[in-house]
Amino acid sequence: MPHDRRLTPATDRIALETLRNTLPRPAYTPGKPARLAVPLADLCRTPGEARDRQLNFGADVLVIDDRDGWAFVQAQADAYCGWIKAATLTTERPPVTHRVTAPATHVYDRPDMKTPETASLSLGARLSVTATQNGFARLAQGGWVPVQHLGDQPATDPAAVALTLIGTPYLWGGNSRWGIDCSGLAQAGLSACGVACPGDSDMQQAAFAVVQDIRRNDLLFWPGHVAIALDDTRMIHATAFTMSVVIEPIQTAIARIDAAGQGPFRGARRPDLAAQTLFP
């Protein structure tokens, strides 16, 4: 059976040690743990080429290979593999204590909202907080973030999380407030609730149980597309139709997508919201 390149921690010259008996390669490695040290980075299918997905600040990865300033990694959160600029990674991995729970936030040089911001972080960024002062959280990596934008407990309603991203620009392979696609939105909502979710819509469709009725937080699928049900009549999705995150009646979307030749509707899947992973 062919390996899915998106989930296979191997390049043409080296593979993760766990694949030694199933995937022939010239060399094998246990991998090197690392963490994303910049606000956002593209995860590419080949160095410098098309983006498959994105990683947010604090994402943990396992480095499998490196060449010409690029590192081939497997993301810890969803096992997605790809090439990322090596300079965006650090081997320093202090304990993660919080996530960004607002759609976006700023990092300040001092615990004072009137000082210049030094970076911007998106929903889901993983942070190591070492202290608080004046309503700001100090990060082990440096800088201060407003405590109102952070949480150390998972949310409970993926749809409500997705609604905070209304109006976010559509971006193929995007995973942040600055740009997101359909599967990125589904993953953002579920991940904020501590529920493991694959990165692409076909993986998401395969991961969750088929249901006949539609309830809030069900995932709704078309070929290459996914939406989150708000109830049995409305959904939220990141769509190239408006190039943004929008709310749309489900039946309107089904008819519109069919008319465009992009159907058919493939039904609903129901994530188990009680099956939470480690958070943050």
Rank of each mutant, 00 (worst) to 15 (best):
F279G: 00
L139H: 02
R215F: 15
I84C: 05
A268H: 01
L171P: 06
A125L: 07
A188W: 00
T164P: 07
W144A: 06
A140I: 05
P111Y: 04
R126H: 02
M243G: 09
D65A: 08
A162N: 11
P9G: 04
G179D: 01
P249T: 07
P169C: 05
K114L: 12
L23C: 11
R216T: 08
V107W: 06
L278Y: 13
R234L: 13
T101S: 12
P26M: 11
R126M: 07
R266F: 02
T105H: 09
T164K: 13
W70K: 11
A125P: 04
D231A: 13
G263K: 06
R126D: 00
L165N: 05
T239E: 04
G189Y: 02
R93K: 08
G267K: 01
V61H: 00
A192C: 10
L165Q: 08
A41T: 04
G151P: 05
P94A: 01
L190S: 07
D42K: 04
C182Y: 00
I214M: 13
D181M: 05
L62Y: 01
W70D: 02
P111R: 09
L230A: 05
L165M: 15
E117L: 14
V63H: 09
R13S: 15
D12C: 12
A162K: 08
F265I: 05
L19Q: 10
I166P: 06
R99H: 04
P271K: 10
L40Y: 08
R45M: 12
Q204Y: 02
E92Y: 01
A186M: 10
V96F: 08
I236G: 02
T97M: 01
T90D: 11
L23M: 12
G142W: 05
R215V: 15
T8G: 03
T91D: 14
R234F: 09
G143Q: 00
R126Y: 04
R6M: 12
D213Y: 09
Q74L: 05
T88F: 09
T239Y: 09
A125C: 10
L36E: 03
S183F: 00
R53P: 04
A34F: 07
D258W: 03
P30C: 12
Q212S: 14
P94S: 03
I214V: 15
A229L: 04
R20G: 02
D218Q: 14
L19K: 03
L230V: 03
W144R: 00
R51I: 08
A255E: 07
L165E: 05
Q54C: 09
D202S: 14
